[in-house]
Amino acid sequence: MAAINRDDVAHLARLAHIEMSAEELDRMAGELAVIVDAVKSVSEAAGDGVPATSHPIPLSNVFREDEVGHTFTAEQALSGAPDSDADRFKVPAILDED
């Protein structure tokens, strides 16, 4: 497995939406390299025959009946918003469209 480098961290920081200074990238790359090295044995521990466990206690078919519950007023919904306008959350311009 390739070691994690500064460019990797820059890419990951972009994916994670965390702006990082050049120094921060360097420091983080160093720290992560150590951590990644420490956890790499994991990929060799389990063979192909071992199933993955994503829930510690297996449950299935947990559903909710389709019945209306509580709602917020717009005021409650927006009570913690950094910015709002006309009962909606206000955000700066979006460049990337999706």
């Binding site: 909710r64 209306v68 519950g69 717009a74 927006l78």
Partner: peptide, 21 residues
């Protein structure tokens, strides 16, 4: 009647941010 993962109403055209929890 309600959303996929919450019990808030699934209704079109209501006042903004009122069909939410």
């Amino acid at each position: 009647k309600t959303k996929m993962f919450s019990s808030a109403p699934n209704v079109f055209g209501d006042e903004p941010n009122t069909n939410v929890n």
